[in-house]
């Protein structure tokens, strides 16, 4: 049976990227502990609206941990703390204690300017993918799918790399604001597959160049990114990106 909790939500309000921003608090009473954290925020917003106030703005969409839209920094951890990686939308109120104050902040990184409250602009990630996160292949032209044999372990490893949901928790957690885990996951996926090899060198160079241009920081291997990644991407990807990049530059 669900228990009920009383918690205080301390949430970040910021009206646009130039605004300084501040915290506001709201008390939530009798929240069943089988409510998801985002549902608790829904309840808070209903109460704010009932009081004639503007609701607290945050990104969310699929609410099943795959779209990568949700992006809240909860009590000092991106997506909140769970045992195995989970996104904000998969965080449930039973993780919190009765009477607790829950601090909710946006991803804070120069690469992700705040749009409003805890909604941030992650279009930089799209730009990095556009720089080279693909194989160039014309619709309708390819050969039969089974003509390319791929060892199962390579396919599985590529699948793990491809699981990245682009939420940005890695950047949010990184003290250097580095996007290496995100970039390396895409580079790794395509580097591991024969389909991605022809453009591997070009891809690694272009994506790293774009990442640098957009002002993301330098990776110092603190591993904070992999600790908070909801999809358990690992820094083995970063090592692979380093290898691909150095190899590509040496070959120039």
């Amino acid at each position: 049976m669900a228990k009920n909790l009383n918690v205080t939500i301390k949430f970040w309000k910021q009206n646009g990227p130039k605004d300084k921003g501040h915290f506001e608090t709201h008390d939530l009473k009798n929240i069943p502990d089988d409510t998801s954290f985002l549902e608790a925020l829904d309840i808070m917003n209903e109460e704010l609206i009932a009081a004639g106030k503007e609701p607290f703005v945050f990104d969310h969409d699929c609410r099943e941990g795959i779209c990568g839209m949700c992006s809240l920094y909860i009590n000092g951890t991106p997506h909140g703390k769970t045992e195995r990686g989970a996104t904000t939308c998969q965080l449930y109120m039973r993780r919190f204690k009765n009477g607790e104050t829950i601090t909710v902040e946006p991803w804070r990184s120069a690469g992700f300017p705040v749009i409003k409250d805890c909604m941030v602009d992650r279009s930089a990630f799209d730009k990095i993918i556009q720089a080279g996160g693909y194989t160039t292949v014309r619709t309708g032209a390819p050969q039969d799918a089974n003509a390319i044999l791929i060892p199962k372990q390579d396919a599985d490893e590529a699948m793990d790399c491809a699981s990245c949901i682009g939420c940005g928790a890695c950047v949010a957690a990184c003290k250097n604001g580095s996007a290496m885990l995100f970039v390396s996951s895409k580079v790794s996926q395509l580097a591991l597959l024969p389909q991605g090899r022809p453009e591997a060198a070009k891809r690694a160079k272009a994506m790293v160049a774009k990442m640098d241009e957009l002002g993301f920081g330098n990776c110092t291997n603190t591993r904070a990114c992999e600790a908070v990644c909801p999809k358990c991407e690992t820094i083995a990807n970063i090592a692979r990106l380093n290898r691909e990049f150095i190899k590509a530059k040496m070959a120039d």
Partner: peptide, 24 residues
């Protein structure tokens, strides 16, 4: 890296267990 991090600091931060103190 300081610049990439931005000027806004988190009010609350928690170090994940697997992050070594030295690395930060």
């Amino acid at each position: 890296n300081r610049k990439a991090r931005g000027n806004n600091k988190y009010a609350v931060t928690e170090k994940p267990d697997k992050v070594e103190w030295a690395s930060q």
